[in-house]
Amino acid sequence: MLDKLLSPETIEETLRIVQNEFPLAIWETLYVTVIATALAIVIGLPLGVLLVAGEKNGVLPLPRPVMQVLNVVINLLRSVPFLILMIMVFPLARLIVGTAVGTVASIVPLVIAAFPFVARLVESSLREVNPNIIEMAQSMGASPFQIIMKVMIPESVPSLLSNFTIAITTILGYSAMSGIIGGGGLGKIAINYGYYRYMYLVMLLAVILLIVLVQIFQSVGTRLSVKSDKRLKGK
């Protein structure tokens, strides 16, 4: 088996695939991941803010039913396994991007799976903000909107950055999974060659590339988060 895996023909074939298909696959993976993360943040950030600010003792208390609906929807979306969610949103994807399969179409389920996750991450970041600081802002006459925009979000930037890093690495993993049902990128290559055509070497390389991408995102994210944090002394 090993000699077949590493035979000159296999290696030659693998190199050919790497040369011809990997650049596009890497690009697709990055493109899908970044766009999906950005959209998930665009939707998840305000929802996360509402989860904290809308509480009974929050800066912008919302009616209880509103909060309940918000929580239930987020929990519901988060409890559906991604693979099933993808199949479930086929009709929606067709509606939004005109097709249910393909690289662009795979962004739709990714965003739907990720925004509730991002909302929860944002929620946990915002809860770390010292309530005394919020009280200080109130004592100076800040409106709820000002408290959100000038206190809660800016004060939790380092924590938000580190949570967004978790989000983007998770979404990268999901985007690979979307290769199974027609999404593009490294996931598709791993499945097509590794699962359907038994070209394990190609699959292995695709997986290694995914790991490298996760590492890059993680270390860049951590660095940004640490760098943005003015609480750390000696800077």
């Binding site: 010292n130 005394n132 600081i133 009280e135 200080m136 004592s139 100076m140 206190v151 800016p154 004060e155 930037v157 380092p158 943005s228 944090d229 003015k230 609480r231």
Partner: peptide, 12 residues
């Protein structure tokens, strides 16, 4: 306006 025991400055 008010000042506090814990100063409550915006750390960022």
């Amino acid at each position: 306006t008010m000042i506090f025991q814990g100063f409550n400055l915006l750390m960022q």
